[in-house]
Design a protein around this nucleic acid. Structure first.
Length: 451
RNA sequence: GUGGCCAUAGUUUAACGGUAGAACAGCGGGUUGUGGUCCCGCUAGCGAGGGUUCAACUCCCUCUGGUCACCCCA
């Protein structure tokens, strides 16, 4: 249970004063509620993810939100920002050191090893959708609990997989109406990365007095990060800086070329970005990020997702050496684009509203509702309301095409009233055939099925 | 973690050194069995704590939160 911090003693309320109820609870920093109004978008995004994964033979996996801290320290990399300052870590009552997952790739590799998935036909293709946690400072498009949709393809080293992943991510966004551009680069093998790193340091060290304080730190700590410095003075320095492509071995170069060829073939727009390095240690070879093509400049939060190959991770986590690649997309950012593009999606309208009057009418309506529902119609009600006026108002709010009214009189007569909500006309029909009557009307009103 | 800006009902907001108006939403009415318009009413607020002052929502400080930028990422 969360404990309130002990502060100054709460002053006693004067006797007889109107008791002010407790201060309402707020949200924990960086957390947020996703309200019903937004679920139209969330649902759309989720269903699209599901269908595209089905189409590509990618199967769903969910790993726990809580993992051993060491999994991430080892998997993501001790030196990374994620591990150094962004993890929600704590010790359990059983003295376990656990962490709320900051990303999913390490967990999925853990699951792959744990369940012996190497005995499955390779590659194993998995997708996930769920919440992740990073103790970052909240900002536009950045929350401490955020959602990711991701795909991992494990057990295949061919370049076609890299291209396919970028394709799936790009295609997914496009199907949702978001034009994205893939920025892509190769960082080669761990060896070429180290060589390149040394070359970078050699290049920048003589120029270190021209670097910002921030960049000086990077030069010492993580020289690759110098490449995505936003310091304008860096622009010219970067232009002359060695590029990693020149440090790739033949195999890596070849691999990268093939990825690009495949992307050309399927028409995925990409930009070569020689300065793209990613913040997680496990990447090898191909790395890519997806950006909103309509966002003029790379503003802070325009990255919609990223991914790449991580051939060394499985072994690092104690499994057999297994090549793998994947991507993750930021669902929250996608949703905000969706909302911006279509501020109001039409509410799902209801076919029929069942209105009732009097106790007998209510009983009949209860049963009638079930009849409609079983028949597969979208139906709504407000049984708790007794005024017909109120019910009509609610029916209207539901956007009901028809309202079926049963009151005392109709129950006695064995009839029901069908009101056409658009025309404002109504007719009396046989109470046992209401559902059938509505279905007949729907058939008339519905245009013939599209081809 | 660092810096700028901000903080009034559920939401968008107004005003004032002497304790707050509005719009939208919500709820209820406009005679008892009928909606979308219109009219009326009701509910609901100064983020928390401290200081200055006769008096603070209004000035000052701290905290909390939001936002934007950096860092980094999704």
């Amino acid at each position: 249970m969360p404990q309130m911090k002990k502060t100054a003693p709460v002053p006693k309320k004067p006797e007889g004063a109107p008791k002010k109820s407790q201060q309402p609870f707020g949200l924990v920093r960086g957390m947020r509620d996703i309200l019903p109004a937004d679920h139209i978008y969330w649902r759309q995004a989720f269903e699209k993810a599901q269908s595209i994964c089905d189409a590509y033979g990618v199967e769903r996996i969910e790993t726990p939100v809580l993992e051993e801290s060491n999994l991430f320290i080892k998997g993501v990399g001790k030196q990374t920002d994620i591990v150094e300052k962004e993890m929600f870590s704590f010790e359990t009552l059983g003295n376990e050191h656990v962490t709320l997952r900051p990303e999913n790739t390490a967990s999925i590799c853990r699951a792959y090893i744990h369940h012996g998935m190497l005995n499955l036909p390779q590659p194993v293709k998995l997708w996930y959708w769920g919440p992740f946690f990073r103790h970052d400072r909240p900002q536009s498009g950045r929350y401490r609990q955020f959602w990711q949709y991701g795909v991992e393809i494990i057990g295949e080293s061919d370049a076609v997989v890299d291209a396919q992943l970028a394709l799936i991510a790009w295609r997914y966004l496009k199907d949702l109406g978001i034009e994205a551009v893939v920025r892509i680069n190769s960082i080669g093998t761990p060896e070429s990365r180290i060589n390149y790193r040394n070359a970078l340091v050699a290049y920048f060290r003589p120029k270190r007095n021209r670097l910002s304080e921030e960049d000086k730190k990077r030069l010492l700590k993580n020289p690759l990060r110098l490449l995505d410095s936003k310091d304008p003075a860096m622009a010219e320095l970067k232009a002359e800086a060695p590029q990693i492509v020149d440090w790739l071995d033949e195999t890596s170069k070849n691999h990268f070329m093939r990825v690009l060829e495949y992307l050309d073939e399927v028409g995925v727009p990409y930009q070569l970005d020689p300065f793209l390095v990613r913040g997680l240690d496990y990447y090898t070879q191909t790395v890519f990020e997806l950006y909103d093509a309509n966002e003029a400049e790379e503003t802070a939060q325009s990255a919609l997702g990223g991914g790449g190959r991580y051939d060394g991770l499985m072994e690092l986590l104690g499994g057999r050496p297994t090549p793998a690649a994947g991507f993750a997309l930021g669902v929250d950012r996608i949703i905000s684009r969706l909302k911006a593009a279509k501020p109001s999606l039409p509410d799902k309208k209801v076919d029929v509203f069942v209105a009732q009057l009097g106790e007998a009418g209510r009983k009949r309506a209860l049963a009638l509702f079930e009849e409609f529902r079983t028949a597969g119609l979208k139906v709504a009600e407000a049984f708790a309301k007794s005024s017909i006026k109120m019910q009509m108002e609610i029916a209207n709010r539901f956007g009901a095409r028809w309202t079926v009214i049963v009151g005392q009189k109709e129950v006695l007569d064995g009839t029901a009233i069908i009101r056409d909500m658009d025309a404002g006309t109504q007719e009396i029909v046989d109470g046992r055939k209401v559902v059938h009557e509505i279905q007949k009307k729907m058939a008339i009103n519905q245009p013939p099925a599209t081809t």
